[in-house]
Design a protein around this nucleic acid. Structure first.
Lengths: 132, 132
DNA sequence: CCGCATCCTGAGGGATACTG
DNA sequence: CAGTATCCCTCAGGATGCGG
């Protein structure tokens, strides 16, 4: 089994307290995709370019503030591009970048895993909660 | 491109406000692996069974409290098993379950992605931060 | 229509000390 | 050595309102 990856690449090899430079690493990527909304937004944008309001409608529970913020982060990381059309009223379209698209694939791996095993997990949780 | 997955499986198809039952879905899986420590712990345990103190030493920045808590969650989800040996002093060993091992693979997909693209991301961030 | 600033609450998570 | 409980603080993130 390839144990080459996890402890060799996930870990920082050093005190992460100071957030030093060095390896850079996965932690901030996890921080990005692990947050509450990024994946949902990317998932929505995967269906095609969308304007702000459309996203706000489609991403179900997201607040105005968080949508803005999430889009900013994704844009900063180069996963999503923002195009503003100087009209009245203003129109802004968001789109997944090529880099962003490459992320979708590995994420789908996780999605499939979750889909395949979430009932096992449910059972395990039920069993665990039962024995007290 | 398989856009079959993301918006069809990530999303709840309904107001997630009430945390209703229905699809179950990936969100709680993401919540598990998206948290600060779970993946690090699993990564460590991937190298073989370990006792509490060993983990505490190896997982770099984790606090006593969070290690306990994380292990409990993983155990509850059936990703990690706990074996307690009734000795003095007590000895407890943690180990990745078969289910837990199946998780490692898709996670490695993400790890590889992060590894392959984190410099692009860094550049993108730098570029973004420059233009103000 | 879109974005930013402000305020406020609650969950996450660290430090510490106490039990078995 | 392993686990639990308590305290406290930080910050993600929701609500709202103004500006462009």
């Amino acid at each position: 089994m390839a144990e080459t990856g996890i402890d060799g690449t996930l870990e920082d090899r050093g005190p992460c307290s100071a957030g030093h430079s060095g390896s850079g690493l996965i932690k901030d990527v996890l921080a990005r995709i692990g947050d509450k909304w990024s994946l949902l937004v990317i998932g929505m944008l995967d269906a095609g370019p969308q304007r702000f309001t459309a996203l706000h409608r489609n991403v179900t529970g997201i607040s105005h503030r968080m949508l803005t913020h999430t889009l900013r982060q994704l844009q900063r990381d180069g996963l999503v591009s923002r195009t503003s059309y100087p009209e009245i009223p203003p129109r802004v379209e968001y789109e997944v970048t090529p880099l962003g698209r490459t992320l979708i694939e590995p994420v789908l791996g996780l999605v499939r895993w979750a889909d395949a095993h979430h009932d096992e997990i449910q059972q395990s949780r039920a069993a665990y909660d039962a024995e007290l």
